[in-house]
Design a binder for these strands. Structure first.
Lengths: 113, 113
DNA sequence: CTAATATGCAACCAAATGGTTGCCTGTCAA
DNA sequence: TTGACAGGCAACCATTTGGTTGCATATTAG
């Protein structure tokens, strides 16, 4: 629910990549997520900690492994509560354009407006 | 068009506040935007520079004033290209739930599953 | 012209960030 | 039981970040 933590968690490209990977395959272990990244395991751990703090990822211990799961809720919350504002502004611009087109005489072409 | 710059620009609460203000009233000067903030003008300038670099704000000089305008395009781009993925995941979860409910015998109550 | 207003520029600073290395702990398999 | 594998913890480091102060420049009002 904390917008700030979510925004800040999303600010880093490595973390967005981790989310991407979890999106492609959910429930990966730490080692899975480290695979192919040029980063130490500890760095990845730190990123995951931040993602968990922002509630973008949840985890569960399974024996000696730790499985990570993506949580789409905070992102959707931001999309709805925050981005919708700007979406509305875009729609306003569109409707202004629409009105402009409608109030402009349709069967006559102007050279300049 | 650069996702990273946009995400990073949005990561700071002060910058989101500035966007908020511009959303409420577009075309404000630097001094307008400073009003009531406990930050120096120079700090605000820096934030605006970052927002401009991310293409979230555009500006125009008018005499000795500099007017600032919000640009909703990058935010919508992110919403569409990035957040849609997670939206889809949520819908997947919903349809899984739906299927579960449909395949579960409707007229008989189970004590445990 | 001169003063006030609006902004720009640069140096500086403390704290946060993203990363590392080194070592410790817990769990599973042979 | 003893490695090997998966992960945790802590100290340390360089760079980035968000902010400051001080001064310079440009425009407008009187």
């Amino acid at each position: 629910m904390n917008d700030d933590a979510v925004f800040r968690a999303l600010a880093d490209a490595s973390r967005r990549l981790l989310l991407d990977r979890l999106h492609r395959q959910n429930g990966q272990t730490l080692s899975d997520l480290c695979d192919g990244l040029d980063m130490t395991r500890q760095a990845v751990t730190k990123h995951l900690t931040i993602l968990e703090a922002a509630n973008l990822v949840s985890s569960r211990k399974e024996g000696r492994e730790k499985l990570h799961f993506i949580n789409p809720v905070p992102i959707n919350a931001i999309a709805e509560r925050w981005i919708a504002k700007f979406e509305q502004q875009r729609l306003t611009a569109l409707s202004a354009l629409k009105e402009h087109l409608e109030t402009t005489p349709p069967s006559r072409k102007k050279k300049k407006d």
